[in-house]
Amino acid sequence: MIRTEGLCKVFLGNGKAGKEVRAVDGLNLEVQQGEVFGFLGPNGAGKTTTVRMLTCLIGPSAGRAWVNDLEVGKADLAIQAQVGILTESPGLYDRLSARYNLEFFAAMYGVKDVKGQVEKYLRLLDLWDRRDSEAGTFSKGMKQKLAIARALLHEPPVVFLDEPTAALDPEAAKTVRDFIETLRGQGRTIFLCTHNLDEAERLCERIGVFRQRLIAVDTPDALRRQLFGRQTVVHLAAPAATGEIESLATSVRALPFVQRVELLAPADAQGGGRLVIALDDPALRNPAIVQALVNQGAQIQFVNEMKHSLEDVYLSLMNNGAESTPGGAQ
């Protein structure tokens, strides 16, 4: 469980320049136990800074934070014993073997069965065969997997993953993502920083869109609904007469429960056009809409729900929240 209250981090400028950078500004957040929480934000949003504060690597400038009911700044060692962190860069000891790297960290975390845990994670992440190779000889993907293993050795109930798939090729990224998926359902709280939207959508139960401040938090579906409402799309066959689709749109617009109707070009050559209808409760209202359209002589090909991509949601949130520019002097 993670909770923050007005968490802030201000970096003082280096020396004379004296420019302050307000990296995190009044973050209020609550992540439930066992939840996979996506922390989404552009470069320089302050994601890494937030993770560093929550893992007691740097101190907050203001505000408070708790990890598993332990307060940051008061019980740092206890917090650090309970969290695992995948740092932005893997930071392995390149001259030492994969196994040595893990055994060292197992000892640092006070793991009882060092050999057993190290073997377990090396096997889980498919690195067992390369256990005695120097970590420096690993590919980026393998390094990342080794760093993930390092974060999990002590079976922490809370795991912070800072951009686990950034800089990986699609295949390596998929392996890592699949592995993270297996971590869900083990009851661990996972705090996942990313700017990969598909990843956030696939892995996270809730998403916080963040840029210096928290812009929105909710499930991906709820965020979509919040921004775009629910929309039904009706695909119509090519009309017999011009203007027919416009008149169909007008008649739908006249229905009392319809909020908005938009006309879109057809999805393919066989279609005539699409009506995008915004409304509250599609399950209840769609039959009436279809009925009305058919009565008007519409040739309906498909009816489905409009799915906005998370990208649309994200971009829309970013544009709305654009007044807060990170890194700007404040």
Partner: peptide, 14 residues
């Protein structure tokens, strides 16, 4: 330089 200090400092050690 190798950024290994960060994971090290994240372990419970004073």
């Amino acid at each position: 330089v190798t950024h290994s200090l960060e994971p090290l400092l994240a372990t419970p050690i004073t």
